[in-house]
Each structure stands twice: as C-alpha cells, then as structure tokens.
Write a protein that binds this DNA or RNA. Sequence first.
DNA 1: GGTAGACCTGGACGC
DNA 2: GCGTCCAGGTCTACC
Length: 321
Amino acid sequence: MGTRLKIAVPTDYVLTRDGCSYGYFLLAPNLWEPRTRTFTRVLDLAGGAATVRIVQDGDAKARRGAPLTAVADRALARPERTEAKRQIARMLSLDEDAATIAAFHRADPRFRRSGRGRVMRSPTLFEDVIKTVTSCNVTWPSTVNMNRRLCEVAGRASASGLHAFPSARRLARMRPAALRARCSVGYRDQRIVDLARLFVSGEVDPAWLEDPATPDDAVHDAMLELPGIGPYAAANIMQLLGRYSRLPLDTESLRHARTLLGYAGPDRAVMKKLHAHYEPFGAHKFRSYWFELWAFYEGKRGPAWTWERETMAKTFTASQF
DNA sequence: GGTAGACCTGGACGC
DNA sequence: GCGTCCAGGTCTACC
C-alpha cells in the first residue's frame, strides 16, 4: 500500500495552470496526463525511487487553492515523506504565495486575469542545471530525447518501473563517452559529468544559491563559472531559482521579438530592444517575458494543460508552429 | 571587447 | 536509404 500525502497550496494555486507553466513539465521524468489532470513523477528518495501521482482536490469550479493529493507507489518512511513534500513544493513553486504573485501582477497587470505567475521547475537545482544544459544548442526533440535517455540509463527505477532523474552522485561516476553513446548528449558529455562532480564535491552549494540573502549578482557570477553555462543558461538557471530579474534570451526570443513585437534589424539591435521592452518590469521581467511567450504557444496549441507529452516532443518551438 | 569556427544531434529535404 | 544542410548556445583562439 503506497503512502498518501496531503499537501497544502497557496490560496490562488491551480495545478493545471501553475504546474503546466514551463517546458520542463514535458521532460522526463515528468509526465502530465491531460485527461486525468494528473502529474506523475519519480522522486529519488533515501529509500529508493518512488513514483508519485499528484492531483488537485475538488471539482473544476473548486480547485483554486484546494490541496494536492500525492500517492506514492510504495510506503514512504517519515523522513521520505518530508523530503517528497519538499521536492514537490520546489517543483510546483508552492513557496510562491498569493501575495508574491500579486506583487508580480502589480508590476505587470496583463497577467492578473489569468493568474499566471508561477513557473514550474525541477525538484532539485541539480536537475534544473542539467536540464538547462540539455536545452542549449539543440532543437526541442533532442532535449526531450536526452532527458528520457538520462533517466532510463542513469536514473533509479521505482516499483512502477519508471525511472527517476539521475542523481549528481550517479552522473559524477559515469564515463563521458558512455553518457554520449547511451544518452545522445553529444559534446555535453564531459560538461555534464563535470557539473555533477561539482555538486557532489560541494563546490556548487545549492543551499547558498537558493538562500534569498545571497545577492543575484553573486549567484549569476557563480553560474557563469560553471562548465557549459553561458549567458543564456545562467539567466535561465536564475529564473529557476526564483530570481526573475534577468532574461535568458535566445533565438526563440528573437523570433518572438520579430513576429509578435514587430522589431526589425540585426540580432544585436533586436536583443537590445528586447531588454528595453522588459526593463519596466524590473525584478519580475523574466515572468513578463515568459508568460508573453507562453501565451503565444497556448494561442497556437491550446492551454498547456491539454498538451500531450509525446505530441509536444515533436512540435514545441515556435519555428514549428 | 568583439568575432569566427568548432562542437554534436536529429529533422528536413533532395536524389 | 543515403548524403547534405540546418538549427541551436558555449567555448576557445585570435585580432
């Protein structure tokens, strides 16, 4: 008999909206099932991997703010329950309370009506860093493949036969050539192993990076020191840390700028205009940028919570719309 | 400080 | 089925 957890959420929380708010919800080991509005995910816990199925209580009209129920495929010891709740809270941004989201809406009222404000992420910073590396310099289908293979090859299996995201300890022990051959990560092989070793050795300290008292600039500088992390990846990891004052601009941003915002000119000039466009949103600028982009995707493909992982694995970037 | 080229994979396309 | 081209961010060497 698996353990059942009841998880309180902020008063304005809606799983379909706040859980399906960033591309990582479509990457292994995450699985969102639109028909049942269930978020399935394998967590790596002290006693082994455990698959949890998460739903929000209440009917369609009464889900807002209703607690989550997470059911594991095995019995969890008390410390594992605490850890599972902590990981789920990070992944679903449950630490962002209604007042925090309201502050974003004061800065950018365009999203007050939809209530958008929370960005989904991973249960651990390590997974967010590796997922970011697997999203650099590739098209979306390759990112999907890399994450699926990483889980299958190096992630611990749960009783359900699903695999967790590999731990830093596990990836730190892998040979780069094996990672390349079995997970299709290409030239990222050495960088992924090096990153894992930095987490294992403690040279990368998630507690310090996640501490609100640590200045943004210090976190950003530390990210840029990491192998495989350049300006885009550093800014992206910043937002995954809940630090929204930087913009991870890439070719997708340029497309957005030209097609939706109507900007013209060479890349450098368009990038400059993009920075100026989001500057008024200050500490919230990433969310203004992201939900603008996300609204475009949803306009083309319907609400994100209706997206099927396998379909979106082949068509996700705007270039393919 | 700016820039060119290499790094890999997988999809699209032409033959 | 094969070969070629292209997209994508980071890193290094060079000016």
